[in-house]
């Protein structure tokens, strides 16, 4: 059994309490939500927080709901909830695509959306999903709330815009007409981190892509959103040539490394292949939405 270093434990009773504890307990305190990234890192002693602030009692953060032309998801919504949500499946099928291939049921029963985004692992799937959907993050402190777009949320690998006196409380995804989305992942084995993942979202009008985005995982630090991809998709007709071209743009905008999951050349190839596949499905879904 792998055992963590000594640790203090606090149980937050409200968001206000959680944020207050976080300010009070110093830089080395960490929130614990599902714990499926943090606890393994603690057992391996790669993470050695002084305090854990357990936020699993914060029932106010467990929702998935529609409001003000947005879908709003509480930071404590678990993978299982995201997988099961009919609201998400209707508006953003990319979520169900991704959740089907994230970890395994045991992890999905505990792991949360907020925890996944805050872990900020470049191989993490939901960051790519949220980026493709142009989501934004609500960050709460004792001074109030601020809203940060996804591209500004991730500061670097394992680093986010959330300060030590703050907490990610909500994820907002804009609801726009004619939307379609899809997720593609290649993994060595079910439940493994992605070799490469690609998420695509498009918004269509009268057979033309008005707006489109692609988010990638596991191919470098800054590939959750690629501006040249968005530029190529905007106003384009959905053709195989377009998917081909966008796949190539995505491939030339990533920086994968050779590791146990695969060679850089293979990963680059996969970016193009999976981007094409995700776009093809996203467009088909958008076209069904249009009808």
């Amino acid at each position: 059994m792998q055992v963590p270093a000594p640790i203090e434990y606090e149980r937050a009773t409200s968001v206000e309490h959680a944020v207050a504890l976080r300010s009070e307990l110093g830089d080395e305190a960490r929130f614990i939500a599902g714990g499926h990234s943090l606890l393994p890192m603690m057992k391996l002693r790669l993470a050695n927080p002084t305090h854990l602030i357990d936020i699993n009692d914060l029932k106010e953060l467990f929702y998935i709901r529609e409001a003000d032309s947005e879908v709003r998801i509480g930071a404590m919504a678990r993978h299982r909830d995201l997988l099961d949500s009919e609201l998400l499946a209707r508006h953003f099928p990319i979520f169900r695509d991704a959740e089907r291939v994230i970890a395994d049921p045991t992890v999905r029963n505990r792991g949360t959306l907020g925890g996944s985004l805050c872990q900020a692992d470049p191989s993490e799937d939901l960051s790519a999903v949220c980026t493709a959907l142009d989501a934004s993050c609500v960050i709460t402190s004792s001074d109030g709330q601020r809203v940060v777009p996804m591209h500004a949320f991730h500061v670097g690998p394992y680093e986010t815009a959330v300060a030590n006196n703050e907490m990610l409380t909500e994820i907002r995804i804009p609801l726009r007409p004619g939307g379609g989305s899809a997720y593609q992942k290649v993994e060595r084995r079910a439940g493994d981190w992605a070799v490469v993942s690609a998420g695509a979202a498009v918004w269509m009008d009268a057979g033309t892509i008005v707006d489109g985005r692609v988010g990638l995982a596991a191919v470098g630090p800054d590939t959750t959103s690629i501006q040249p991809v968005a530029e190529a998709l905007a106003g384009a007709a959905p053709t195989e040539d377009l998917y081909q071209r966008v796949g190539e743009i995505a491939a030339s905008n990533c920086s994968p490394e050779t590791d146990g999951r695969g060679t850089a050349a293979y990963k680059t190839h996969l970016v193009a292949e999976l981007t094409r596949r995700a776009l093809r499905t996203a467009v088909a879904r958008a076209q069904r939405q249009e009808v």
Partner: peptide
């Protein structure tokens, strides 16, 4: 024969 090794 991982996907990467097959592709290579």
């Amino acid at each position: 024969l991982t996907p990467s090794r097959v592709w290579e």
